[in-house]
Design a protein around this nucleic acid. Sequence first.
DNA 1: AGTGCAGTTGACTTT
DNA 2: TAAAGTCAACTGCAC
Length: 521
Amino acid sequence: MQTISSSKGLLIENNKPVQRTPCQIVWLKRDLRLRDHAPLQAAVATGLPTLLCFCFEPSYMHCPESDVRHWRFIRQCLDDLQQQLKPFHIPLYVFYGEVIEVFEQLADFLDIRFLYSYQETNLQITFERDKAVKKFCQSKGIVWKEFPSNGIVRGLKNRQGWVEEWQRRMEAAQHTADLRALHPLMLPQEWQPLCRTQQLPEAILKNDKNFQPGGETNAWRYAESFFRERAANYSRHMSKPEESRRSCSRLSPYLAYGALSIRQLYQIAKKQEANGMMPLQMRNFQARLWWHCHYIQKFEMECRMESACINRAHQKFAKPIIPAYLEAWQKGTTGFPLVDACMRAVAATGYLNFRMRAMLVSVLTHTLWQDWQPGAVHLARLFLDFEPGIHYPQFQMQSFAIGHHFLRIYHPVKQSYEHDPQGNFIRKWVPELQHVPAPLIHEPWKMTAMEQQFYKCRIGADYPFPLVNHQQAATKARLWQKAMEQDPEVKAENERIVKKLSNPKAEMKHIPALATPMRKQ
DNA sequence: AGTGCAGTTGACTTT
DNA sequence: TAAAGTCAACTGCAC
């Protein structure tokens, strides 16, 4: 019988709205920030009451690539946004439910005029969900405005002009929303049970110190220390499994969930380069930002690579699965110390530098001769910064499923000598080898019986022999590559891929960030 | 002191 | 952000 008036004038009687206020929704997806945010800026510009929301979607949370570490990170990002919004008295509503169901319930109560969000280059499941949202919006007469994300262009048929467009977007002014001017829409207390966030799995609500903490505020802490100090050794350390953990930016999880935009980082790096602050490192970093978008753009244009080889003719070259090999790779018991250390490190912390990720893929697909698909899903779960648009193109390129790059077979022992010479990284993650000194630690199977006893590690008992002979496996993989390259269907597919997904060389020359090639040291 | 030679290093090419 | 092969230049050493 009582009429409730929310703080922004929404009238409720018996839990039903008497007056449906025209309003709009800003739907946060993988853009969990307040700065350089186009949908927020647009919402402020129209001036309508705005509902700011995020949905934890059970279907998406149960996809094979997903892990609790991702959802914990997202929850931390949302906590941070809520803290930041408090002084502005703007609520951020977090729902636990399928987006369509949540929107349908909201539409029962609210006169939703606009829906704002970023375009999302993500898995098939979110693509299908977006199609359903589009249909829903059409049925309700809601105008859904989607803004392009970072350097990604939707609907491209080929790469003509993409490089220029990327450059234009990076140089453009950031989207700033004056939050004091945002007119927030408050849901009455009685509607709070709609959110159902108390039903979220416990593990998502708990923090875990082994992983980088989510949130825009934390993102800027990492960015600040990187640009001020840590970047000094960027190029020198990026290939090292141990040193890279400090000298790389560690911004990838924040980029994956949109706590930062690529443009924000690009503009800082460019400014520092111009000011002579670590100019080479800043140049290198800008190039990385370009590659980041380059791969996501590939995935945007050929998203079937999530579940199939990008080179269609590769289906007939499928490799037989040996479950014991796959399992040893996943558990970090292949017998190659650096490989096992890398897998255990990424399982425990969600992070591994680029080169070591590539080595893991190479060992699975070339040395152990396993199909890339199960491995891709496994690492997707382990990477805190899992970004489908980078993960799948990289995984396929590395495992040669693309077919027009040269074969990148990493020698797991050579990498070990070169990038963990003292074996400190190995000792940290493979405690079975903690008493084994360098250089024996790189090839422990070469230890004599006396050495094994002395260093408290019996090969074959405490730590396994290598599953396979890498050298023989690599030779076989090279022959396989040769045979594949000569296959006419593979050739035809490669031509199609290059034509569609490669950037014209002439265009790339105009990108200053790419002018200085990557330097190892 | 100069020569021959095995081994190493680094730049470059090939796959 | 590969590794192997090739070749020339260099190095250390024995004589």
